[in-house]
């Protein structure tokens, strides 16, 4: 028997934590942007030495274990970036971890307040998705020098959360009986994780298209952007596949068929095909590079439409995701 009682105090706390998270992500975004604008040596493709310096600059404080030998190699050739700007980058990382923590707190308190998995409606789902994308970014950041992505990921997360708070928010409460299943933990969690990874790859792909290799830029090389986008998709794609299959298994328990071309099913299928097309395109002569990146962005568009648009525009079995009218 599902519980009908909602802990109002915790639910309110959760709402406040999410608001704090939006502010923290925005602050982090500004700090990342400052670092991006002033804290990095500008890079172009041709001189290998200056590019080497980027790796050093980015890895100097927290992320990449740059070797001491490298640090000696660079500085003579280029002007080192302003000290305060590099600090701004470190502040940005700290603030995003703080935002991550309040985001997590917001999700946990909501979950405890209603005593169920906290992704039972559109609002909770979008909050979880933003959390996942920031998590993916922060985890990647501990292994690779991708701090330049920070401004874009945090602004996407802040916008997503803001959208959720303004337009999707519903009061904490129990879910429809159909959602009351352990499958919500499996199916929706997988979709959220894959969504977070796809978002990071989408940001990289967008930057790839913006990046002009011939000119000086604060962004890393196209190759690097391509690799980040590809790697994120390579991890996300099997997870997404699993999410779709878990959805089919759940549908088999709840609706009497494992696949019935409900709008959500149609669009998760389209998204899957689009990412499969990206993986094929990237491995095909003539499609590699820009064309493949465009395919991945189209796929990301399908994903966003599937996660949010389908619930708003179409009526289907997933419409109990509780979008306020």
């Amino acid at each position: 028997m599902p519980p009908a009682q909602v802990n109002e105090g915790l639910a309110t706390l959760s709402d406040q934590l999410i608001l704090v998270t939006v502010l923290l992500y925005l602050a982090a975004m500004i700090a990342y942007a400052l670092e991006l604008a002033f804290g990095r040596a500008r890079t172009a493709v041709a001189p290998a030495k200056s590019r080497r310096l980027v790796a050093v600059g980015a890895g100097a404080d927290s992320s990449a274990p740059a070797e001491p030998a490298d640090e000696d190699a660079g500085p003579a050739t280029t002007v080192p970036p302003a000290g305060w700007a590099i600090k701004s980058g470190a502040v940005a990382v700290a603030v995003s971890w703080l935002g991550w923590a309040t985001n997590l707190g917001g999700i946990l308190t909501r979950g405890i307040a209603v005593d169920r998995w906290p992704w039972g409606n559109m609002y909770e789902f979008v909050v979880a998705l933003c959390f996942a994308s920031v998590t993916v970014f922060l985890i990647l950041l501990t292994r690779q020098p991708i701090r330049f992505l920070g401004a874009f990921v945090t602004v996407a997360a802040a916008l997503g959360l803001g959208f959720a708070v303004l337009f999707l928010h519903v009061q904490a409460g129990p879910v429809m009986p159909a959602l009351n299943s352990y499958w919500i933990a499996i199916h929706v969690t997988a979709a959220v994780i894959a969504g977070g990874l796809f978002l990071v790859s989408g940001v990289s792909a967008a930057l790839y298209l913006v990046r002009n290799d011939g000119r000086l830029s604060v962004l890393p090389s196209k190759e690097q952007l391509d690799r980040i986008a590809h790697r994120a998709i390579v991890i996300a794609f099997p997870i997404w596949t699993f999410a779709v299959i878990a959805g089919a298994l759940w549908a088999d328990r709840a609706w009497g068929r494992y696949w019935g071309w409900d709008p959500k099913e149609v669009w998760s299928f389209i998204t899957w095909i689009a990412y499969a097309a990206y993986l094929h395109a990237r491995a095909t002569a003539g499609w590699r590079g820009k064309a493949a990146m465009i395919v991945s962005l189209v796929a990301f568009g399908c994903l966003l439409f599937n996660l949010v648009g389908v619930n708003i525009f179409f009526s289907g079995l997933h419409s109990y995701a509780d979008v306020p009218k």
Binding site: G260, V266, I273, A274, A277, F314
Partner: peptide, 23 residues
């Protein structure tokens, strides 16, 4: 194969826009 994949995805779109007899 790539073109067919695209067509496959594109072909499913109307299935979500228009109501389906099977659904």
């Amino acid at each position: 194969a790539l073109i067919l994949l695209f067509l496959f995805a594109l072909g499913s779109v109307p299935g979500s826009i228009y109501p389906q007899r099977s659904v």
